[in-house]
Each structure stands twice: as C-alpha cells, then as structure tokens.
Design a protein around this nucleic acid. Structure first.
Lengths: 273, 273
DNA sequence: AAGTGGTCTAGACCACCGC
DNA sequence: CGGTGGTCTAGACCACTTC
C-alpha cells in the first residue's frame, strides 16, 4: 500500500510529503482497528531490523533526518521512537555522531519482587504478621557496616513472622537507623507493621537487593515451623534516603513455601494475564 | 503566553511560583549540572510533591493544561514529563479523566539478573564453560509441561558447567523446543555455548524467572565440586517467541559462590558506581 | 459540550562531533 | 563547516470520559 502514513489522520492544511514513501508503516498483517501509534511503528520497524540481524550490533542506523524523509513523518515522532529504544538498551545514541545498534544483548533481565502482603492477599489467602521483638540494641559489626554506623552504635531491631493462612512464610529480621527514623521504637506495631510504617513514613530513594540460599539456624527454623535441614531463600534489602542508610532487613523464606518469580516481555514490561 | 519562546532556557530560573523553592535535597550530591532540561525540572517538581507527602497517593495532579499555564512551557514538554513519570510507575494517567499519584509504589521492586559470563569478566576473573552433554531425549512430564509439549516428545537437552577462575559457579541444565530451534543439536558448542547460540539466533519476546533455594543432588554437588549439604540458588528461566516456548533452563548455583543482587534508585534505574 | 490525555507536526535553537 | 542528536514550541486532531 502507499497511503502515506501521515495522511490517515488529518484534513488539515499540509499535504503529506509525497516523498519516496518507501515503507508502508501500517504493515500487512496489521488489523486496522488498533492503529498503532506512528512512533510505535517506527520502534517496531527498527526492532525488527535489529532482531532479524539486518542491523547487527554496532551498525549505524539512519539518522533522525533520514527516517523523517523515509517515512514522511515529523522528527519529534522519530525522536521519540529512538529515545525509547535507547531507554530500552537496544540502541546507543551519541549526540553529534549518530545512532547505533547496541552491542551485546543486555542479557540482564529483571526479576520483580512483589510486596508479600499484597501477594498473599491477591492469592485470596489470609495474611497475618506477628511482631516478635522490637528493641533498641547495640549494632553488631555486620549491622553497623550495613547501616554505615559504628560498632556498638544504638540501632532499632525488630523481628516479625509473616503468615499465609497461618503458615509462616517469612521471618523478617530488621535493623533501622535511629538517626533517620528516631521514632521507630515508639510505634504501635500492632496497627501497622514495621515495614508498613517505614514505607509510609520514610520514603527511600535507593534500594539494594541480594538473594541468597541458606540453611536456617535451629531458632529460625523453629520460628518458621520448618525443619532446619530444608534450605531457605534469604532476601536482604537495604534502603537509602539521600545517600543515608535507612534500614537493612533480612527476609528468610522457607523455600518450600516461597519462591521469587516474574514474567517479563522483551521490552522490559511485566506480563499480565 | 507570549514570553520569549526559547530564549530563557539557559536561565532555568523559572521554576514557577514563589511558594516552592529549590530544596537542598540535591545540593550536596549534585555536581552542579548544566541547566537541567525543562521536562526534567517538571519531573523533579512533581516527584518532590509526591515524595514529601504534599500529593498523597490517589491525589489528582494538575492537568497538562494547568501545568502549561503554571510553568509557561509547552504542552509537549509537560506531556513528556508526565509520560516518563507514568513509565516509572509514580503516576497513573487515564485519558479523559486525569492524572493521579500512583498508589503504593514500593509494591514491587526489581532485581536485575545479569549475564553470568559478563558478570564474571567484569570482575576481572576468568570465565570458562564446559559442555558436558548435548543430546536429544524424550521429554519428561516436567519438561513437556514447561515447553508445552507432550510427554515423550523429542527435545534437545544440554548440560554445562560455568566456571569462574576454574571454580564451578553454575550448573546449567537446559531443554530446547526442537520445533522452534531444529538446528540446536547440530551446533558446535565448543565455539559458542548453548545460551550464546540461543541469544544470538532465537530472539525471545517473553521471559519468566523463578528463584528457588534447594539442596543439590549428589550428582549435581559433584559436578559443582561442592558438598551436597550446602544449599543452592536455583534460577529457572523460560523464554517464548510469539507465544511458543523456546527453552527452559535450570541454573543451579552454589550459594556460597553466587548471589543475585542489584541496586536501584527509586525511579527504577540501576545504580552504577 | 467541556475537559482530559495521546499523538503528531513543522518548524526552531543549541551543544557537540568530525572534517 | 555541516551533520547529529537533545530539547522546545505553538499549534492541531482524535478518542475518550464526565457532566
């Protein structure tokens, strides 16, 4: 077909540039109703070239100006397509030089870590949290290192068990920097558990996650109502506000009752349904 | 508006109103950047309102039109700021209705799963892969289910050990759908290991990850040169092309030699350095 | 009908790169 | 110098929701 892409939309004054209308933007297999956005069609076109090997890594793509001419669309539209491809790591752009197919598939993919309580409730199960300990103690070497404090400095400590339908699924061992959250110890955690309190009152701007596999100690196993020979997933999370450590929490999950998982599309978006 | 169209960019002095002044939030850490883009200033302005609680979750933000009037900038610029905030999950927009502060953002955070070989090389260590098995076998019930095949259907199977400085860090147990990758069995995996071959030749459009903690079997422990009483991280990955399962791979890591980890900013971008 | 966001245009200025 | 990308404008049409 040759309907110039820009022609489908407006009855306004300009004429769609009669240029070489090389590529029909509304492709053959495309049904008509969704009528994909132009920038999306450009993204798809370029993605296809990259994925089928026509444009190998390092290959220079057409400049914005060339794409404008080729497709008969405006530069803003081309720019948006290229910008989003850059954000997705498929394209590398250098001002004053050009745009290039990114080297090395960013083989790194993402794993989504959901909120435990919502996850449980979303399954239609009962969620409950038992707060076992809230205290103020002296920082061990490890805790001091994690929170950028000195050995022996005072820190808040809380210990909770999270239960799904009455079965323990997480033992949450948390340390909180009192310089950032001085009121942590004065909270009523029967109304709002420690993590909820922090999420609502101490916004963070950085998060670090580490996932380990470990065997629980005898005490941990007892609190999780499991045998100590079964492995656990250990999710350690640290958060910062303006560069200052806020809290470090070690979430211990019996592997038989919990797994991390998520499904993503190649564009980095989660899959629903 | 009729003030100078593009004349004032450099000044950047024009974030609006008298009421809100620049906050020392970035004062110390910011290396005095060269005049932030307008859309970025709008993003920052809105982010600040959200983060300091002025605009709680569910709060309706000013419409694009209002922001245009308030800041004296064009709608495209406002639109870009709001679009990017939406992509980052801080704002929810509904056409015909309005823009709202997203509910509960820390609902889910992301964990980045990097490419093992690059990760090892980036540490300055030696990376090597030993291909132990490449064969064509009958699908077990589990494999058939994972690849959407029938019990007993023919599938490719490969088994590799990945080593960091000669020490096994991953046992890769892979099954490949021959309907999608018929040539898998004919490859020379001494030049290009299975995962490299697949990444380069069979682009996927969906990925699923599941992380477990397990104890290795005696055979697995032997191949990983570890004791079978130590736990392992098990990363199971499935990929699809156009809805058809391509491969399922189970990556077993001795927990003592490997952990998953990553650090993100609140805006969802990884932290470097 | 009025308001909202989603998209697009045809220009424009700028900083930067390589020649 | 011309080419490149990064940004911005002042309009516009559309589909949609709400009143």
């Amino acid at each position: 077909m040759s309907p110039t892409p820009a022609s489908r939309r407006k009855a306004s004054s300009h004429l769609p540039s009669p240029s070489v209308a090389a590529v029909p933007l509304t492709a053959s297999t495309s049904p008509m109703p969704p009528a994909l956005a132009l920038y999306q069609q450009i993204k798809d076109h370029i993605s296809r070239k990259i994925q089928d090997g026509s444009w190998p890594p390092g290959h220079r793509l057409p400049s914005e100006h060339e794409l404008v001419a080729q497709f008969g669309i405006s530069r803003m539209t081309v720019n948006r397509a290229l910008r989003e491809l850059t954000e997705q790591g498929r394209v590398v752009r250098v001002a004053g030089v050009g745009s290039f197919v990114a080297e090395e598939k960013p083989q790194s993919t993402l794993l989504q870590i959901a909120n435990l309580a919502s996850e449980i409730r979303q399954r239609g199960h009962d969620y409950r949290c038992e707060v076992l300990v809230v205290e103020r103690i002296s920082a061990s070497l490890e805790v001091a290192a994690a929170l950028d404090l000195r050995l022996g400095d005072s820190v808040f400590h809380s210990l909770c068990v999270h239960l799904e339908d009455g079965v323990p699924v997480q033992l949450e061992d948390r340390y909180v920097n009192p310089r950032v959250v001085p009121d942590f110890g004065a909270q009523d955690f029967s109304l709002q558990q420690p993590s909820e309190y922090l999420v609502r009152n101490v916004p963070f701007d950085q998060v670090e996650h580490v996932v380990d596999a470990v065997l629980p100690t005898a005490e941990q196993a007892e609190r999780l109502a499991m045998v100590p020979t079964q492995p656990c997933l250990l999710l350690t999370r640290r958060t910062w506000t303006r560069g200052v450590p806020v809290t470090v929490v070690r979430c211990l999950h019996p592997a038989s009752r919990y797994r991390l998982g998520s499904r993503f599309r190649a564009d980095g978006n989660p899959v629903f349904g």
